Computed example of a mutant assay.
Amino acid sequence: MTHFPTLCNVDTLDWKTQNTKKIVRHIVKHVEPGDIILLHDVFPTSVEAALEAIDVLTRQGYTFVTADELLID
Rank of each mutant, 00 (worst) to 15 (best):
E48S: 15
I37T: 03
L13T: 01
V65L: 02
V10N: 06
T58E: 13
L51G: 12
D11R: 11
P5H: 05
L70Q: 05
I37K: 00
Y62D: 09
D41V: 14
L57I: 07
D73K: 02
L51W: 09
I27Q: 10
Q18S: 07
F43M: 01
E32L: 13
T58D: 10
F4W: 04
Q60W: 10
T63E: 13
V10G: 11
E52F: 13
W15D: 06
D55G: 06
V56Y: 09
I37W: 02
K16I: 01
F64I: 11
Q60E: 13
T17V: 13
H30S: 07
D11M: 08
V47Y: 07
T2Q: 13
S46L: 04
A53D: 00
L7I: 12
L57N: 13
T2A: 12
Q60Y: 09
T20M: 11
T12M: 12
Y62R: 07
V56W: 05
Q18F: 02
H40S: 05
S46E: 08
A50H: 10
P33Q: 07
V47W: 05
G34T: 05
E69C: 14
T20P: 12
L51D: 09
V24I: 14
I54C: 06
I37R: 01
R25L: 11
D14F: 11
N19A: 04
T45G: 01
T66D: 10
A67G: 02
V65T: 08
L13P: 00
L7Q: 12
T12S: 15
T45Q: 15
V24E: 06
D35L: 04
Q18P: 04
L7V: 14
D68Q: 10
N9M: 14
I36G: 04
V31A: 14
V56H: 09
D41W: 12
V31S: 12
E52H: 12
M1H: 02
Q18W: 02
T6F: 00
D73Q: 10
N9W: 09
P44K: 06
I54L: 07
P44A: 05
K29P: 01
T20A: 07
P33D: 12
G61E: 05
V47R: 12
I36R: 01
H40F: 04
H30F: 06
T2L: 13
H26D: 13
L51M: 14
L39S: 03
L13Y: 12
L39E: 09
D11L: 08
D73P: 01
M1L: 08
H40D: 11
T58Q: 09
K16D: 04
I27A: 11
P44V: 11
T6M: 04
H3A: 12
D14R: 03
R25K: 15
N19F: 00
P33V: 10
I54F: 09
F43L: 02
L38M: 15
A50L: 15
L51I: 06
V24A: 06
N9L: 03
F64Y: 11
V24R: 03
T20N: 02
I36H: 03
K16A: 01
T63P: 09
H26K: 14
N19S: 08
I27K: 08
K21V: 13
P5R: 04
